[in-house]
């Protein structure tokens, strides 16, 4: 029933490539088996996939760490226990010593504690941005896929325009529009960038659902339009959205770090965030590269975890790679 999207040809535009990836995932939901057993059979393959397991382990460890960070951190991230060791001329960044295994930052605050507590902000920004992006995409995609007609054309026109702009650039532009940057402007900017991805994805799987046998069967019983959309189409269309959400989390975390690094995030450094820490480490790259290295490594590892998990999930659900 569902056309399998063609492999991307050699020369395609950026927007086309993004759209094709999204559509391939959408078509997974319409694969012959139907939602429940689709996820089941995907899980059977994933259980033995080391790439997925590594991604899962990193992700779980990160989330667990973020949840217990305040109790784990030896110091308050805003306290300045090593303030006395900071010598702006000779020793701007105090190194490791007893009780401070990673040393301190340029304001004498315990670096380990700041990294631990920083994971919370990173997780919060990522999760909230993904959540709002998902919400917006859900509304637009459901509208476009279920109503069709000119609403569909309009929504998809906007979505395609947004998809043709690289997401980081768009997020950067949106965040820079805010007169007073804060954590919330950051979240909104990143969420907005994710909306077209989720919208296109959901529309694709809603269209596949609309053409499905069980929707035809429900219509043959006179089931009302609203029940068709919300009971028969939407729950079955959500599968690929869940996969996309894990991928978006990875992107959201990287983007959030990038924007904070550029000073477009929360300006208050008493609440640490990895991207912000990385930004503030810039002046000391020569004397204390570790100040930049630790938050950067954290961002990379966590983003890698989400990406490995999301990509192998996507692969497991993709009808083209299934045997």
């Amino acid at each position: 029933m569902t056309p399998t999207p063609e492999l991307p040809p050699e020369r395609t535009t950026y927007a086309e490539r993004r759209s094709q990836r999204i559509d391939a995932l959408a078509s997974a939901s319409a694969a012959e088996e139907g939602g429940v057993s689709l996820i089941k059979s995907a899980w059977r393959r994933l259980r033995r996939n080391p790439v997925f397991l590594v991604g899962l382990a990193i992700t779980v460890a990160f989330i667990a760490l973020a949840l217990v960070a305040p109790w784990l951190a030896p110091w308050d991230p805003a306290a300045r226990p090593l303030l006395d060791d900071v010598r702006p001329q000779s020793n701007p960044v105090p190194g490791p010593e007893a009780g401070h295994p990673l040393g301190a930052d340029d304001k004498g605050r315990d670096l380990l504690s700041r990294l631990l507590v920083g994971s919370q902000q990173t997780l919060l920004v990522g999760v909230l941005a993904t959540f709002f992006g998902l919400l917006g995409g859900l509304v637009l995609g459901t509208l476009a896929g279920a109503v069709g007609g000119w609403i569909d054309s309009l929504v998809m026109r906007i979505v395609d325009v947004m998809l043709s702009i690289p997401s980081l650039l768009l997020a950067f532009t949106l965040a820079a529009l805010a007169t007073r940057p804060s954590q919330w402007t950051l979240i909104i900017a990143i969420a907005t960038v994710q909306v077209p991805i989720f919208a296109r994805l959901l529309r694709g799987s809603m269209l596949a659902q609309r053409a499905s046998d069980h929707v035809l069967a429900a219509r043959s019983l006179g089931v009302k339009q609203r029940a068709i959309v919300f009971r028969h189409m939407l729950p079955n269309a959500l599968g690929p959205v869940i996969v996309q959400a894990t991928l978006v989390l990875a992107v959201a975390i990287i983007d959030a770090a990038a924007l904070s690094f550029l000073g477009l995030g929360n300006p208050d450094d008493r609440r640490p965030e990895w991207g912000q820490m990385l930004g503030k480490a810039q002046p000391f790259l020569g004397e204390a590269p570790h100040l930049a290295f630790y938050p950067a490594a954290c961002i990379i590892v966590v983003a890698l975890g989400f990406t490995l998990m999301g990509e192998s999930l996507r692969e497991a659900l993709d009808p083209k790679t299934r045997r």
Binding site: E32, G34, S212, A217, S220, G222, P235, N236
Partner: peptide, 18 residues
């Protein structure tokens, strides 16, 4: 569904899986 109803060829795909 009230006056006229229909049944289809493939019983698995004709039911809502969830």
């Amino acid at each position: 569904g009230r006056e006229i109803a229909m049944i289809f060829q493939d019983p698995l795909s004709s039911l809502n899986p969830v």
